[in-house]
Design a protein around this nucleic acid. Sequence first.
DNA 1: GATTTTGTGCTACTTAGGTAGTTTTTAATG
DNA 2: CATTAAAAACTACCTAAGTAGCACAAAATC
Lengths: 237, 237
Amino acid sequence: MKGKNLVYQRYRRSLENCSLLSEMDDPTFKSLISLFYEEKWPKNTCFIDENKFLCKFFIILQGRVKMYQIDEISTKEVTLFLLTKGDFMDLFCLLDGSRHKVYYQSLDDVRVLAAPMENLHKWLQKNPEYYKNLLSYAGKQLRMLEDYVSDITFTDISTRLLKLLITNVNKDSNNLELINDLSNKEIAFLIGSTRAVVNRHIQKLKKNGCVLTSRENLQVMNLPLLISLLEKKSTNS
Amino acid sequence: MKGKNLVYQRYRRSLENCSLLSEMDDPTFKSLISLFYEEKWPKNTCFIDENKFLCKFFIILQGRVKMYQIDEISTKEVTLFLLTKGDFMDLFCLLDGSRHKVYYQSLDDVRVLAAPMENLHKWLQKNPEYYKNLLSYAGKQLRMLEDYVSDITFTDISTRLLKLLITNVNKDSNNLELINDLSNKEIAFLIGSTRAVVNRHIQKLKKNGCVLTSRENLQVMNLPLLISLLEKKSTNS
DNA sequence: GATTTTGTGCTACTTAGGTAGTTTTTAATG
DNA sequence: CATTAAAAACTACCTAAGTAGCACAAAATC
């Protein structure tokens, strides 16, 4: 009994930022968490066209999962979201049980909490006020996609790359996080471009002294310069 | 009393497809609708940077409202959603009361149901199960934006134009709807492009006999041809 | 009915970004 | 350690889409 309590507390802490759980009292939290069990996905696990997400719901505990779409014709990719601790999969399947034409891939060794869809449905029916939390989560994603759309239509690749770098620098440590160990290809998918083009722009940033690169590694060396480059873009055009 | 009942029934019918109201019994419907009053917006009313949407919530009864973003620098536009009967404004402000960097403009004479935000909040607190309906609405919008993102990154303007036309042809009447009376400029904003480019492609479609145009009017003359053009795009590349 | 505004059609020009191909570097594998 | 595979770096080329500018037609406004 005491041991189980400890487990709950551990989850509570590591899911601090999970919007489904926000403002949830302890008994409710326990009733919800008891629906879940832990699952591990090794790095680079792909979930392509699986039923997995139709019958189970997942909350990420640790590691990154990219949610992406593929163009069947050109086999191009776009990453829609880089999901991390506290993110869900798949909200749509939860909503209406319909297949979501979207793929998932783990970018790290990932730990998730998994629960059968129907159990979660029952729980939500008993605790409908927590739909609100899910709604606020969906809202955040909506805004992100809105910004994605306007970024793609308004700005060029180099601007998008600058923005991506700047927003992923941790203000405290001054280090690039979350995307620092991605290949040029993955970075391209994050801003809706291709490896070659992204590399072209990264070369310029290297020559400026803005960034330093090695294989699957990007470091921001001069954040102020990056920011001023971004500002120039705004005033020029 | 009888008169009020009639009004309720009228709203019920005209909001058949409104997801907030789906599977709602009559007493609940009445309790909700009584929060609202009707408002009219003349054609081309713009709501730019207004507090309006922070303190009131709207459901469209009639007419189109475009929800769009503007790039301050280039003053370019993108239309994110063409809202019609049963759509809401603004879900985000409802969610967290924060300003939503998005603009609205009526494309017709529009009738809406309006309610003070706080009243709606109270009502939802009493009827939390209807958050589920809002969530499913947000879900639909999320999917639309996902498709928007992948369309923009994967396909060229002519493909996007073809898709836009095809999806807006009413299968029964065979007529172009919803976008048939838009200017080239507005069409461009719907697919993330510019007037000149869209016009260029429309000219080709005219020469093919696919469409017929006049000032602020587009007619689809040969749907099968449009569809086959779209299919060719897929097989070619 | 004169004037202004707005949408359309068309030309010519520029360019960023996509594409293809090759070399080099780095890491993983047996 | 040799081999293989993947990522990165770089070159050369092409094209769709954006841009600017102008002429014309159709509405809207006065």
